[in-house]
Amino acid sequence: MAVDIEAEHIAAGIRRATAPIPIGAPGECDNCGEDMPRLVDGLCARCRDGRIPMRPEAMRRAASREPTLRPSLVPISVSAPPAAREAPRRPMVALLDGIANLLAEHIEHAERLAAERDAAIERAETAEATLASIKAALGQ
């Protein structure tokens, strides 16, 4: 089974690499609405490659047109093991979310450290003022 999946994956890669690149035209993407310099079948690159989920009405419009999409954009149906089916569909988005969370934690930690530093400086200044008043009372 793994050999069959690998063979299909390699064959799909070869088809993608040798497929002709369709000519695009500038305009507004049917899916995301962004004005782009190159649309193929009314879709921008981000919508064609799946970085932006397809809205149902955009899918219907794309299906009604004469297809010029590269074969790489046609989904391959392969039954995957349950663990693979449960994996996130968009690993790059999950990775970027993880990086954003780490960055937020880092900023929060830095803010906590800055607050602790400010509190320590305030305590030190209070202690120095108290020491100075004690020295003055003792006549030193």
Rank of each mutant, 00 (worst) to 15 (best):
Ala25Asp: 13
Leu102His: 07
Arg123Leu: 07
Gly33Leu: 13
Met59Phe: 14
Ala45Trp: 02
Glu128Cys: 08
Pro67Cys: 03
Met59Asp: 12
Leu39Ser: 01
Arg16Thr: 00
Gly139Ala: 05
Thr126Asn: 10
Cys29Arg: 00
Ala87Trp: 03
Glu122Trp: 04
Arg15Leu: 00
Met36Gln: 09
Thr68Trp: 06
Ala124Gly: 12
Val74Ser: 05
Ala94Trp: 12
Ala25Met: 14
Ala104Met: 10
Glu108Val: 07
Ala100Met: 15
His9Asn: 07
Arg60Asn: 09
Arg61Trp: 08
Thr126Lys: 13
His106Cys: 13
Glu57Lys: 10
Met36Lys: 03
Ala19Glu: 01
His109Gln: 04
Ile10Thr: 00
Ala127Asp: 07
Ile21Glu: 05
Glu28Lys: 08
Asp49Gln: 15
Thr68Leu: 14
Ala115Asn: 11
Asn31Thr: 11
Ile134Asn: 01
Leu102Val: 06
Arg60Thr: 10
Asp49Arg: 15
Asn31Gln: 14
Leu103His: 13
Ala110Pro: 01
Cys32Thr: 13
Ala83Val: 02
Ile99Cys: 14
Gln140Met: 12
Val78Met: 00
Cys29Trp: 04
Thr18Asp: 01
Leu102Ser: 12
Glu66Asn: 13
Pro56Val: 06
Ile5Asn: 00
Ser64Gly: 15
Pro37Thr: 05
Asp49Cys: 15
Cys29Phe: 05
Ala137Gln: 12
Ala110Ser: 05
Pro67Ala: 04
Ile5Trp: 00
His109Pro: 03
Asp118Cys: 08
Leu39His: 07
Asp30Arg: 02
Pro22Phe: 01
Met54Arg: 05
Glu105Gln: 13
Ala83Lys: 05
Arg55Met: 10
Arg65Leu: 08
Leu39Thr: 03
Ser64Tyr: 15
Val74Tyr: 14
Asp41Arg: 13
Ser77Asp: 00
Cys32Pro: 10
Ala114Cys: 09
Ala94Met: 14
Gly13Gln: 01
Leu73Asn: 04
Ser79Asp: 14
Ala104Leu: 10
Glu122Ala: 14
Arg85Lys: 05
Thr68Gly: 15
Ala137Ile: 12
Val40Asp: 00
Cys29Ala: 10
Ala80Trp: 02
Arg65Ala: 10
Gly42Met: 12
Arg46Asp: 05
Pro56Trp: 02
Ala17His: 02
Ile10Leu: 01
Glu8Arg: 01
Ile107Gly: 13
Pro67Gly: 05
Arg85Tyr: 05
Pro88Thr: 06
Arg15Gln: 03
Cys44His: 00
Pro81Cys: 09
Ala124Asp: 08
Gly98Cys: 07
Arg15Ala: 02
Ala11Asp: 01
Gln140Tyr: 03
Val40Cys: 03
Arg55His: 11
Glu108Ala: 14
Leu39Asp: 00
Pro20Arg: 12
Arg89His: 15
Thr130Ala: 03
Glu116Trp: 06
Ala80Gln: 06
Pro75Leu: 02
Leu131Asp: 08
Ala58His: 09
Ala94Lys: 15
Ile121Pro: 02
Pro20Ser: 08
Glu111Gly: 10
Gly50Glu: 12
Pro20Ala: 10
Pro26Lys: 09
Leu69Tyr: 11
Pro20Lys: 13
Gly50Cys: 14
Cys47Arg: 01
Ala104Asp: 11
